[in-house]
């Protein structure tokens, strides 16, 4: 791996460039990252406190990399990594991928990616944090993870491990409420442009993941929009498929179409839909601005359109997630979702 001195520390390997494909664990003195789309055996490290990181660099990367870090130069050196303990690598990787999955898991009915069970995710995170608590930045990481966890009785193996961790840290855990009636994976039926009136224009717009909370909008879907004239006024209809995730039912979304704000109604037929009158002047917008930009007012107030290159990256992330559902190195939370899916 390339060990380089940078402006504010030392890097081991290149960090992923995009937040939505970054699996992150915060170690003592360093950020550890994996690229979810192009996963390496070992994480990249951005080390900001060489002294603290020395406590675990040797076990994650081996003695040669550990020795190369304090001696790193701006020119960089290629040093072979040889992890001293594979169990530690695996626990850190689990922790990092669960952090990614909690934030970015692209649940999608269209792409066949089922939602993750959030109770399993939190349970597995607490177990993984406890396994490597000696190298984490937060000296109360296990307590913090336990505070969010509940006993996942749907997964006896994980439940037993979590119970042991909870006892070791003196935390009494509630039972998980269970995932209430999971949304199915069935493709949502049509729905756009079926209102009355004369069709003026129709199109579809990508949804920015960062503009909506996790688990709300189908990660592979686009927002469909239709402009139609009825009588003497013009309206825009917007419709976007919901994620196959229970959290989608409790979200509030809007779409911005030029100057028009379109409130999107609660999920119906697994879609968010809304209609709003549109001033005639809006029809004079340049074609590039004919877009329904979906966002959650709770998390974003100035949503951007999605760049074409972002769309390609997202396709790759969805494919990577789908592959993780049955991959042996994936987290138990991901594999459980893969087994439960039809």
């Amino acid at each position: 791996m390339i060990v380089t001195r940078a402006a504010d520390g030392v890097t081991v390997g290149p960090a992923p460039r995009h937040p939505e494909r970054t699996a992150l664990a915060e170690a003592a003195g360093a950020l550890l990252t994996w690229d979810v789309v192009d996963p390496a055996a070992l994480p990249s490290a951005t080390i900001h406190d060489v002294g603290r990181a020395a406590g675990w660099l040797w076990e994650l990367y081996g003695a040669d990399v550990a020795a190369a870090v304090p001696a790193a130069t701006q020119a960089g050196a290629d040093v072979a990594a040889a992890p001293a303990d594979q169990r530690i690598v695996e626990a850190v990787r689990t922790l990092a991928h669960l952090a990614w999955a909690e934030a970015w898991w692209p649940a999608s009915a269209l792409a066949g990616v089922p939602a993750l069970d959030q109770d399993l995710l939190r349970a597995e995170r607490a177990v993984a944090a406890a396994a490597v608590e000696h190298l984490l930045d937060d000296d109360e990481a296990v307590e913090r993870a336990l505070a969010a966890a509940a006993m996942p009785h749907q997964h006896p193996e994980l439940a037993a491990e979590l119970a042991a961790v909870a006892e070791d840290y003196g935390v009494a855990l509630p039972a998980a409420a269970g995932t209430p009636g999971r949304a199915g994976l069935a493709l949502a039926a049509g729905g756009r442009g079926d209102g009355a009136g004369v069709l003026v224009a129709r199109g579809s717009t990508q949804v920015s993941w960062a503009a909506v909370p996790p688990g709300v909008v189908d990660a592979a879907a686009e927002a469909g929009w239709t402009i139609r004239r009825t009588g003497d006024h013009t309206v825009v209809d917007v419709s976007v498929p919901a994620a196959p995730d229970p959290r989608a039912r409790t979200a509030t979304l809007r779409a911005r179409f030029g100057p028009v704000e379109v409130p999107l109604e609660p999920v119906r037929d697994d879609r968010f839909t809304g209609t709003a009158p549109i001033p005639a002047a809006a029809l004079l917008l340049p074609a590039a601005e004919w877009a329904a930009v979906v966002y959650a007012p709770a998390v974003a107030d100035a949503p951007d359109q999605v760049h074409p290159e972002d769309a390609a990256r997202r396709t790759a992330i969805v494919a990577a997630a789908r592959a993780r559902l049955s991959a042996t190195h994936a987290t138990r939370t991901e594999r459980a979702a893969g087994q439960a899916a039809p």
Binding site: P19, H48, A99, P297, A298, D301
Partner: peptide, 26 residues
């Protein structure tokens, strides 16, 4: 320097963890 670096790093971690910005209505 180290404290400032931790505070600035948090902005990056926020984006990676998909946490809302301080400006968000939520």
């Amino acid at each position: 320097s180290r404290l400032r670096s931790r505070w600035r790093r948090e902005a990056y971690v926020h984006r990676v963890l998909r946490l809302p910005q301080a400006e968000a209505a939520v």
